[in-house]
C-alpha cells in the first residue's frame, strides 16, 4: 500500500560521517556488487567498456569544495543513497502499490513484481535516490541491504548493509535512529547530525555528520614535540653561500 505508516516501530537507517569519508567509492562498489548478486533485479550497465558507459547505482559519492571565509579550503566527499524518509514522497505517488515503507523498521522498498516502471517516484524524490534500471524496466533503490541485516546465514558481524561493512574509514554507521540510546542516535546528538534539504519536509531517517573545521584539529596550547626537530638548521648561510648571499644583498 502506498499510504505511509503513521509511525514505524523502529527507524533503521544510516549515519554518514562527512568528516571521515575519504571518497574511495568502496561503498559504491560493494553496494553494486551485493545488490547485483542477491535480492531483486541486477543493477545493469549499458556500454560499460565503450565510449558512453551508463549504469544503475543505488549509492553514489559526490565531492564538494568548500572555501570558508577564513581557514583552509576543504574537500568534502559526499556519499548519497536513499534516506528512508519518514514522509517519503516517492511512496505516495506510486500508482501500483509497488513502493512502500515498512511499518516495523521503516525501510522504503520497491516490490519489483508490481512496479510498472513509470518513473514517477524518481521524479518525486528530491535526492535522486531512485534509478530506473534500463534492462529490468523497474525502479531500483537502496534496500538498506534488507537481505543482509536479517540474514541468519551470515556471521553476525556481516549483518549490516554492504556499504557500512566495507567502509575502510568507518564513515558509515547503521542502526535504529528511532531509539535515542542507540549508538547511531548518540553519534547524531554528539556531532550535530543534519538532514538534507529539510525544507522539502521529507523528514529523512539517514543523518549526515558535518565535517569538523580543519583549524580545530590541534587543541590550543598543545605542544608539538616534533617541532624542534623541524627547525631550520642554519639561520644564516655560511661559507660560499654566505658570501653569495651578502654579495647579492649589496647589488
Amino acid at each position: 500500500m502506498t499510504a505511509l505508516p503513521k509511525t514505524t516501530d523502529r527507524k533503521l537507517g544510516l549515519v554518514i560521517d562527512l568528516d571521515t569519508c575519504v571518497g574511495c567509492h568502496a561503498c559504491v562498489i560493494s553496494c553494486k556488487g551485493w545488490n547485483t548478486e542477491n535480492y531483486g533485479a541486477p543493477l545493469s550497465d549499458q556500454d560499460p567498456y565503450g565510449a558512453d558507459p551508463v549504469g544503475t547505482f543505488l549509492n553514489r559519492v559526490h565531492s564538494y569544495e568548500i572555501t570558508p571565509e577564513s581557514g583552509p579550503a576543504q574537500l568534502v566527499h559526499f556519499p548519497k543513497s536513499c534516506l528512508h524518509c519518514e514522509d517519503a514522497p516517492c511512496v505516495t505517488v506510486c500508482p501500483t502499490g509497488a513502493s512502500y515503507k515498512r511499518q516495523d523498521d521503516g525501510i522504503v522498498l520497491v516490490n519489483e513484481t508490481s512496479c510498472i516502471g513509470c518513473g514517477l517516484c524518481a521524479w518525486a524524490c528530491p535526492y535522486g535516490a531512485r534509478e530506473m534500471d534500463a534492462v529490468a524496466g523497474v525502479m531500483k533503490k537502496c534496500t538498506l541491504c534488507v537481505d543482509r541485516i536479517y540474514n541468519k546465514n551470515l556471521p553476525e558481524q556481516d549483518r549490516q548493509p554492504a556499504c557500512v561493512r566495507t567502509c575502510p574509514s568507518n564513515a558509515r554507521h547503521f542502526g535504529d535512529l528511532g531509539d535515542p540510546d542507540s549508538d547511531v542516535s548518540r553519534l547524531v546528538a554528539e556531532r550535530g547530525g543534519m538532514d538534507l534539504m529539510p525544507e522539502q519536509g521529507t523528514r529523512p531517517v539517514n543523518k549526515y555528520l558535518p565535517p569538523r573545521p580543519k583549524q580545530d584539529t590541534a587543541p590550543a596550547g598543545e605542544v608539538d614535540i616534533l617541532a624542534p626537530f623541524l627547525e631550520p638548521v642554519a639561520d644564516s648561510p655560511q661559507g660560499f653561500l654566505g658570501w653569495l648571499d651578502r654579495a647579492l644583498e649589496k647589488l
Binding site: S63, P68, V76, L196, P210
Partner: peptide
C-alpha cells in the same frame, strides 16, 4: 541546503560521482 555544507562558507560541486 541540499548538502548541509552551507555554514562554513562558499561551496562548489567539485566532482560528480561518475565519469
Amino acid at each position: 541546503s541540499a548538502t548541509g555544507l552551507g555554514r562554513p562558507g562558499r561551496i562548489r560541486a567539485f566532482e560528480p560521482p561518475h565519469t
